[in-house]
Structures are given as structure tokens and as C-alpha cells.
Simulated scan of single mutants.
Amino acid sequence: MKNFALIGAAGYIAPRHLKAIKDTNNNLIAALDKFDSVGMMDSYFPNADFFVEFERFDRYIEKIKRNHISLDYVSICTPNYLHDSHIRMALRRGAVAICEKPIVLNPWNIDALADIEKESQGKINTILQLRLHESILQLKEKVVLQNKKEKYDIDLTYITSRGKWYDISWKGDESKSGGIATNIGVHFYDMLSWIFGDVQENLVHLREKHKASGYLEFENARVRWFLSIDENDLPNNVKEKQQRTFRSITVDGEELEFSKGFTELHTESYKKILAGEGYGLEEVKKSIEIVYNIRNNKILKTGEKHPFLI
């Protein structure tokens, strides 16, 4: 049984990490969040110490270390712009870091963390759950077996409606979230680069606060992508069903079914990390470079555009 601490316990994604820690038969000894609405911890680790101030949390971690209680892992579910700092804290305490995506906002942050990782006793892992999804694994296997000479043509569309709260929260601040493509798209870009190889071209056709669109060309695929949190972008048939999310990936005109199968992927991610098979900094670097360039490339009016822009 390993000892865990969790930073960002009141966040949306935290329950999946709590469940993963419990499902892998490990123990949460401490949790931190400046918000105290963390009653769901009772369903997982009611005896874990909880803190609303980082200083007291850090002092507690130091105290247990001096009492020869090991802290083996730190799970990080905080806002994107804080990941870098909290990873560093985990490594300073000799723990392994498990960080939600995006692991950092800029490529040079990864290089700096790699240096610190080498100097520490710990290791840095990130959650890339799409790599564990059955439909994505089948697609990767298909691509390897087919060994096509021509590139695949892919349309990626992801619309996940958000209310007015989004702009008020840290997610609506690009300096903290990295913007729409980083916040809701980074795991898709990771999946695409994992299956189809290195990026050869990265064009941006639309970049607004609530939506973005562009064209990515990989070694083995041409991808038109569209991301949005605006419910007005939902297709009419989705609106009629009163659904607020639309997720679609077509590969050479064939729809990839991956609407289900997400519930246990964090637990599966933890199993791999605990077995020493987690995804580290090198694996995640491509996707961070993609979203950084989307954030900074100039907007073009020409090129292969997503159907939603035509």
C-alpha cells in the first residue's frame, strides 16, 4: 500500500483520482484545496488530513517525513498554470508526481522539469487516458497493420457546452488555462500524434475565447479540427435531444465510436503508473508543442478548413 497526497481536491477531476487511488488499494494521507467543498472525500478517504492553505499542507508533509512516514505519490488536479509548481513540490519531497493534462502550458517548462526530475528521487507522470481507450487502441493497431502509403483524412469535432461561469473561472483566463485548444483539446492532439506521428504542419483558421479551429498534418494523417464550448455550435440533431456535448472523429469518412468507455480510464492509468509504465515528459512533449503553436501561430484565411467553418 502506497501513501498518496492530492492537490486540488475540490476540482472537477479530483473524484476520478480519489477513486483510482482507492481502486488500486492505496492510501490517501493528505489533501489540499483552497475551497473546502470536499465532502466527496468521505466516500473514499474520510481519515485523510485536509488543508486549505498550501503552507500548512507543506509543513504537514515535512512533519510526516521526519516521522519516517513515506509520501510515495502526489496527485495534482489543480488549475493548469499551477501544475509546474506543484510537480516541483512533489519532487522536492521525494515523491512521484501524477499530474492531470496539460502537464504544463509551454514546451520550455517541460525541459526545466526534465532537469529537476534528473536531480530528484521522483518521477513525473501525466494522465493520457485516451491512449488506454479501447477504440483508440484499435485504431492505432489498424493504422500499424494497414501501413497505408496515403495519409488518413480525419475530421475532429468536439463541442462541450459551458455556462457563463467558465469565463469567470481560471479556465476563461488564457494565461492560466492556455486557452480553449489547450484546456479541452490537448488530449486529442496527444492521441493523434501518438497514432499518426510527428507534426509536419500546424495551421490555425479560428482562435476565439470560446472556440478554435485549424488544420494539423502529421506523418500519416491530415486533420481538420474544431473545438468549442459554445452550445450554439452543436448540430441540430444534438440540440433536439437536449444534449450539451458532441464528440466526433471520422477517419477516411468512417465514424470512430468512442462515446463510452471513459469511466475506468483513470484507474487504468494509475495501474500503469504504479507498475512503472506511466507516461512521462517525453511522451507528452509533442502535444504541448502543438497547443503552444496553436496559441501563437498567426490566423490564416486559406487552407484546408473544418466543415463547420465552410
Rank of each mutant, 00 (worst) to 15 (best):
N3C: 06
F4P: 04
L18V: 01
I21P: 03
K22D: 08
T24V: 04
M41L: 11
P46H: 01
A48N: 02
F51Y: 06
E55T: 10
R56D: 14
F57A: 00
R59S: 15
R59K: 15
I61M: 07
K65Q: 12
N67T: 12
L71V: 05
S75E: 11
I76G: 06
Y81I: 06
L91W: 00
R92S: 06
I116R: 08
Q121Y: 04
N125H: 07
T126Y: 13
L137V: 09
K151N: 02
I154H: 04
D155F: 09
W165L: 09
W170A: 12
T182Y: 10
N183Q: 07
I184K: 00
H187F: 11
G197S: 02
G197R: 06
L206R: 02
L206E: 00
A212W: 01
E219L: 12
N232Q: 12
K239V: 00
F246W: 05
F246V: 03
E257K: 15
F258Q: 05
K260F: 14
Y270P: 01
I273D: 00
A275C: 06
E283P: 06
K285L: 10
K286D: 15
K286P: 15
Y292N: 11
N293R: 15
R295S: 13
N296D: 11
K301C: 10
K301Y: 12
